[in-house]
Design a protein around this nucleic acid. Structure first.
Lengths: 189, 189
DNA sequence: TCGTCTTAGCTATTGACAGTAGCCAGCAGG
DNA sequence: CCTGCTGGCTACTGTCAATAGCTAAGACGA
């Protein structure tokens, strides 16, 4: 039997593609193996198991999201940076629902790589907030606020919770503008 | 063998208690049956299956959350109503994590009871927004905004995503105050 | 080219889970 | 008392993650 030539990264990337597909059936190793032309137990030669696979996806997704956020804010300052970052955050979450869900998972305590990836997002957020003049606890509050807003909106949108017949983009833009105006005011408090 | 005397409502309530326990292991029918002193297949005499059980929990949880929100806003107006409602929303979500998660599930199209329960929450939200002078699309935008904020914050908090050493209550209060100030301004736009 | 070693993929199996089939005993109503 | 209903049971299937152990593909050195 010709070998499939799998590697850890090939398996992980295939899983990422699988969970980001629109119909979004829950990830199973059998489905993943089938997609790779291999039987389910063969995957264990390349991943430690389901938990390990999900962790790999989470770490990579966090780094990817941090990158999306950082690139969106390049060359922008203050509210403009937040707006651009938020729009790209929402867009990436919408086009990568599975990966986005993975970014929310808190790292297991002691998992240095996962903790570093999580910190990467926080660092980008801090840098963007510093452009609004926010430091220390103010910045923490601001990051939590913006993250809650983005995560809440994106999650509800993905679950089809915004059923009412009104433009969702407009709702998002208004919410974002309001939050940014709030955050801008915190710098003086 | 003495009968256990189960009914649909007894099973559903036991499941609710199970998913709201702090250690939060995923719900299984075997665990639920064990809790009720019965074998797993016996549950099928009282519920249609896992999907049906989750749906029952969701419907009841939505009605319960709508009630929590409505009671919190009794006798209050405008920003005070929103603040009180939000504080109680967050508190209920924190003390009933499993039930709260169930409230987010969008109803299956055509499930009248679930759709009605979902609408109940929306109705309460509309009433509270009308106290801010918000109507029509403004109210829809406001509801989406507040819901995103509350859901995002509560979800991230439940997942331990707020790791930074800063007071979470303070972050919540500031975010809430900012959002309310924003919404109040929308009435004139 | 051949021999050897590593290892990728396989089959077979276990154990947890949801769900179904079919049995039997508790109990109610005549 | 007896008859029918039904709640709980055992026994089973199929799907899932995961493990054990086999075999052959392929790399590498002599």
């Amino acid at each position: 039997m010709a070998r499939a030539g799998l590697t850890n990264i090939i398996v992980v990337e295939a899983a990422e593609r699988l969970i980001d597909e629109p119909d979004a059936t829950p990830l199973t190793l059998a489905a993943l193996a089938g997609r790779l032309g291999v039987k389910q137990p063969s995957l264990y030669k390349h991943i430690g198991g389901m938990d390990d696979l999900c962790r790999s996806i989470a770490v990579r997704a966090k780094l990817e999201l941090a990158d999306v956020m950082a690139r969106a804010a390049v060359g922008k300052a203050g509210g403009d940076a937040i707006t651009s970052m938020s729009l790209n955050y929402r867009k990436w979450a919408a086009t990568h629902p599975g990966r986005y869900a993975a970014t929310v998972r808190a790292p297991v305590t002691g998992d240095a790589e996962d903790e570093a990836a999580t910190l990467e997002i926080t660092k980008v957020a801090f840098e963007i907030m510093s452009g609004l003049g926010l430091r220390g606890d103010d910045a923490v509050d601001a990051i939590r606020a913006l993250r809650a807003v983005l995560h809440g909106f994106v999650t509800l949108e993905a679950q089809g919770a915004f059923a009412l017949p009104a433009d969702i983009d407009r709702s998002f833009d208004r919410l974002l503008a309001g939050v940014i105006a709030s955050l801008a005011g915190w710098a003086n408090s």
